[in-house]
Simulated scan of single mutants.
Amino acid sequence: MTNVVRYLTHPQVTIDPSIPVPEWGLSQIGRARTESVTATGRLSGTRQVISSGERKAIETAEIIAAKLGIGVEVREAMHENDRSATGFLVPDEFEATANQFFGQPHVSIRGWERAVDAQLRIVGEVEHVLARGTPGDVLLVGHGGVGTLLYCHYAGLAIDRAHDQLAGGGCFFAFTSQERRVLHGWRRLEEL
């Protein structure tokens, strides 16, 4: 039997330029959106919840896993693309830099991790989890940048920001665990 693997990006966070981005937590809106998902029961077949090591992803994963009565496995290498060279960027500057990141995947933009390297890393982490062959559906909780790179890989698409999640985060896509066939593109977490 083929199980479903869902990759979910964390929803809205509390932005604080004085705190390193990986340490940002969910905002009240992000937390409320995540909690609303747990009431639907649509994740009842999930047997593994795997999270990036960033605080916002862990908080998202813990809310869902608690409702499912299972633990969260944290995999540090599932982190967002490494942007530590620039740290926090104001929204317009961030968007312009992210456009370059996706538009020139073989180049380190402003010292950021190259998109091709981030894609290899996230695909490797997901493949490691799936190689265990644990029965049941899998929920991977992470970030928009590497999530888009993962989606491009499994959908057989070139790296391109045109395949990015919907604005606001808190989106997911799904694929089959055996064939790695994409079932659908990005949807809002409220559709879980």
Rank of each mutant, 00 (worst) to 15 (best):
A155S: 04
I63E: 05
E190K: 05
T2R: 13
Q48I: 10
T86Q: 05
V13D: 02
G53I: 10
F172C: 03
D16I: 07
A158L: 03
A158W: 01
G53F: 08
E191Y: 07
L43G: 14
Q48D: 12
D160A: 09
I122E: 06
L130F: 08
D164S: 12
E76A: 12
L89S: 04
T9S: 00
E127L: 13
V49R: 11
Q28D: 15
L68M: 09
F101K: 03
V4T: 15
D16W: 06
G69F: 08
L68S: 13
Q12D: 14
L130Y: 10
G133M: 13
P22L: 13
E190S: 09
R110A: 08
A131V: 07
R42M: 14
L157Y: 01
F94Q: 02
G156T: 03
G111E: 06
D117P: 02
L166N: 14
D82F: 05
I63W: 08
E127W: 09
G147Q: 00
R188G: 02
G45R: 15
R110N: 05
T40Q: 14
D117S: 03
M78E: 03
A61N: 09
V141A: 00
V74D: 04
L68F: 11
E35D: 11
A118N: 07
R42V: 10
A118W: 05
A61E: 09
R110T: 04
E191C: 11
R55V: 14
F102S: 01
T86R: 10
V4C: 13
V129L: 10
E95N: 07
Q178H: 12
A162I: 02
G69A: 07
I58V: 15
S44E: 15
D82L: 01
V138G: 12
P17F: 04
L68H: 08
I50M: 13
V90D: 12
R187F: 01
G156I: 05
L8R: 11
A61K: 09
A174S: 15
G124K: 11
Y154Q: 03
R33A: 10
H163W: 00
R55N: 11
W186E: 00
T34L: 10
I109L: 01
P17M: 02
G87K: 02
Q178F: 09
V72L: 06
P11R: 07
E179V: 07
S44G: 15
R6M: 14
V126F: 09
L68V: 09
Q165V: 01
E62Q: 15
S44Y: 10
E80N: 01
P17T: 02
A162N: 06
L8Q: 12
R187T: 06
T38H: 07
A118M: 08
V123Q: 07
E80M: 00
V72Y: 07
I159K: 02
L89K: 08
T97Q: 01
A162L: 06
W112R: 00
T60I: 05
G170D: 02
G124S: 10
L192F: 14
L189T: 02
E23T: 02
